[in-house]
Design a protein around this nucleic acid. Structure first.
Lengths: 187, 187
DNA sequence: AGTTGCAGATTTGCAACTCACC
DNA sequence: AGGTGAGTTGCAAATCTGCAA
């Protein structure tokens, strides 16, 4: 595909072809596709899933890490003392899951017994209420409208600029597509 | 992230974090993102870009392949005779770019001189008007509505199910999001 | 195929209200 | 009792849509 206005020829198509299968197409046709589809999107740029929005997940995540860690080290699973867990849940984890994982790994190493107490956690975690980081990075997702626009453009290109066919793909009336495009043009 | 209703813990977040950069976020925030974003989408399942809709691109693609081939083989670039190119452009390339590439590779090998004539192409290509393949696979793209749904779900998940915040991300009123979700629920 | 008028259907943001939790 | 924030609903205005030309 040659992007509008560009001159580069690409060989993406090929791989796409290889990666596709009918089942998926079917599933997609009926509009039900899995979120992991969007994880891919994500990998490129869209969003940083903020762990701090899911504090309830922390116990589960922690448990899972501890279990894995125990397996890897051929040791028994270490437990979190209640207040240790509290600390974990209170912290904002700006580094998300990775940071949580690292902290727990460290804690496992530092703990001699089978119970992990708060002392084993990095200071920044236990320091209650680390003041809101200067640049509390607010993650950004594209606007619904932005997605619509981009997707439309993309389908349109795949249909060789044929608006009627593109409209069929999109499941809307050609006139509707026509107007949407017009709107995009203005703005 | 733990998908709604699931129990698996994942560590996707991390990599995402690593792969992201501010510039992209900026660009995205303002709603202008490049099509290659959707190529990724594409890689997973969405669509088979049909080469037959872009016959004008064929000369360019062919040229680029020939150039590359020449480089790889340490030979001079071979040229397409006019009627060879005609044949290429007349053919529907159900296998898309991959098929084109293969055909050219074959042609290069078969051609002793520096000019590629039609005889060097696979039969199916030169057989004028190969009858429309039995299952002329019509590529499918998800409906606009399907995309909207999926994207909304995805953002919603990233916001930990918080509809208000998700609505902010999406650039719509919380009530609007609420209703959309309700609609999805019914259907 | 692309475009536009049109009348009806749908959708939207706003604001108000409830509910839960601090 | 007071405050904040999420979720939800009524409503009138604005927008959007499919159809047909």
């Amino acid at each position: 595909m040659i992007p509008v206005g560009a001159t580069e020829a690409v060989s993406v198509d090929t791989r796409v072809l290889a990666a596709t299968n009918r089942d998926l197409e079917e599933e997609i046709k009926r509009g039900s596709f899995r979120p992991d589809l969007f994880y891919r999107l994500n990998v490129i740029a869209v969003h940083l899933p903020p762990l701090r929005h899911r504090q309830d997940d922390i116990p589960l995540l922690a448990e899972s890490f501890l279990a894995r860690s125990a397996t890897l080290r051929n040791e028994g699973v270490k437990m979190l003392r209640d207040d240790t867990l509290d600390a974990l849940m209170a912290y904002a984890w700006p580094g998300n899951v990775r940071e949580l994982e690292n902290a727990l790994e460290r804690a496992v190493i530092l703990s001699t017994g089978s119970v992990i107490d708060p002392d084993a956690l990095p200071e920044r975690v236990t320091a209650r209420r680390a003041e809101p980081l200067v640049s509390e990075r607010t993650p950004v997702s594209p606007t619904l409208e932005a997605i619509e626009r981009a997707y439309i453009q993309w389908v349109l290109q795949n249909e060789g600029g044929n608006k009627s066919r593109a409209a069929d793909m999109l499941g809307i009336d050609p006139s509707t597509l026509y107007r949407k495009l017009a709107r995009y043009g203005e703005a």
